[in-house]
Structures are given as structure tokens and as C-alpha cells.
Deep mutational scan, measured.
Amino acid sequence: EEPWTQNQQKLLELALQQYPRGSSDRWDKIARCVPSKSKEDCIARYKLLVE
């Protein structure tokens, strides 16, 4: 798996703010905001960050 770039991390953080918990299809929308990362990548990264 490719490491996360600073840019991808920033895009993930912005998308998390844009689509708060409870948004419909939240992770699909977030993944579309982060180039070359899947929905599963984004969820895994999020879990890593909040632990």
C-alpha cells in the first residue's frame, strides 16, 4: 500500500469536515475527494488517526 502524502492527508481532513458523521454515503464521498485512495484506505487512515 502506498504511504499517504501530506496532500492526501490534508484532503482527507478537509473531506472529513465537509461530510460529518451521519452524512449519507459519507465514506464514498470522502474517498472521491482523495486521489488514489479507496474508501477502505480512508476508513483505515481515519481509525488510525482517532486512536
Rank of each mutant, 00 (worst) to 15 (best):
K10I: 05
I30E: 04
P35I: 07
K37L: 01
Y19G: 01
K29R: 13
A15N: 00
D25R: 08
C33R: 10
A31P: 02
Q18I: 04
E40T: 08
E1Y: 06
C33Q: 10
S38M: 05
V50P: 09
T5G: 05
Q17V: 09
S23Q: 15
A44Q: 13
V34N: 01
D28Y: 04
A31V: 03
K37P: 00
P20F: 01
Y46S: 14
L12R: 00
S38Q: 05
Q6W: 04
K10A: 08
L48V: 12
P3R: 09
V34G: 00
Y19I: 12
L48C: 14
R21M: 09
R32E: 15
K39Q: 08
R32D: 11
L49R: 14
Q6G: 10
S38Y: 01
Q17D: 10
S36W: 07
Q8F: 00
P20H: 05
Q6P: 11
P20T: 07
R32H: 12
D28F: 03
E1N: 05
Q18M: 10
E13S: 09
T5Y: 05
L16H: 02
R32F: 09
K47C: 15
I30P: 02
R21D: 15
P3N: 10
I43K: 15
D41W: 00
L49C: 10
K47T: 10
A44F: 07
L12Q: 02
C33M: 09
Q8D: 10
P3M: 15
L16R: 02
V34T: 03
Y46D: 13
S36E: 15
K29Q: 08
L48R: 12
A15W: 00
L14N: 15
V34D: 00
P20L: 04
E13I: 04
Q9N: 07
E2S: 05
D41N: 09
S24P: 14
R26V: 05
D25V: 05
K47D: 10
S23I: 06
V34Q: 04
S38K: 05
Y46T: 11
W27T: 02
E2V: 11
L49I: 14
N7F: 09
R32A: 13
L12G: 02
V50N: 15
I30Y: 01
C33H: 09
S36Y: 12
R32P: 05
P3G: 15
K39E: 06
K37T: 00
L11H: 14
G22C: 07
T5H: 06
E13V: 04
K39M: 05
E2K: 04
L11M: 13
A31Y: 02
L12P: 01
V34Y: 01
R45N: 13
G22L: 07
R32I: 12
L49D: 11
R45V: 02
L48Q: 13
Q17F: 08
E51Y: 15
R32Q: 14
Q17M: 11
E40R: 09
N7K: 14
K37D: 00
E51G: 09
E40Q: 09
E1D: 10
R21V: 14
K37S: 01
P20C: 04
N7E: 15
S36L: 12
Q6H: 11
G22Q: 09
W4I: 02
L48W: 12
P35V: 07
I43R: 15
Y19C: 02
Q18E: 10
K39W: 01
L11A: 11
S23H: 10
G22I: 11
D28G: 10
N7R: 12
A31N: 04
R21E: 14
E51K: 10
W27F: 08
Q17A: 10
S24N: 06
K39C: 04
A44S: 12
S36R: 12
T5E: 06
S36C: 08
R45I: 01
Y46G: 12
S24I: 13
C42D: 01
R26C: 08
I43A: 09
Q9L: 13
V50G: 15
K39T: 09
C33N: 06
W27D: 02
W27M: 04
Q8S: 04
R21T: 11
K29L: 11
R26H: 06
L49V: 13
I43Q: 13
A31E: 08
D28E: 15
Y46L: 04
R21I: 08
S23M: 13
E51H: 15
D28H: 05
K10D: 10
W4V: 01
P3T: 15
L14H: 08
T5C: 05
I43F: 09
D25S: 07
Q17H: 09
W27S: 02
L14M: 12
S38H: 05
L48G: 13
W27G: 02
I30C: 02
Q6V: 13
S23E: 15
Y19P: 01
D41M: 08
D25C: 11
K29H: 11
A31C: 06
L11Y: 08
A44V: 07
L49W: 14
I30A: 02
Y19T: 05
W27A: 05
R32L: 12
K37Q: 04
R32C: 10
E13G: 05
Y19H: 07
L48Y: 07
W27K: 02
Q17Y: 06
I30K: 01
E40A: 12
S24C: 12
C33V: 11
R26K: 06
R32W: 06
K47A: 05
T5V: 01
E51A: 08
G22V: 05
T5D: 14
R26P: 04
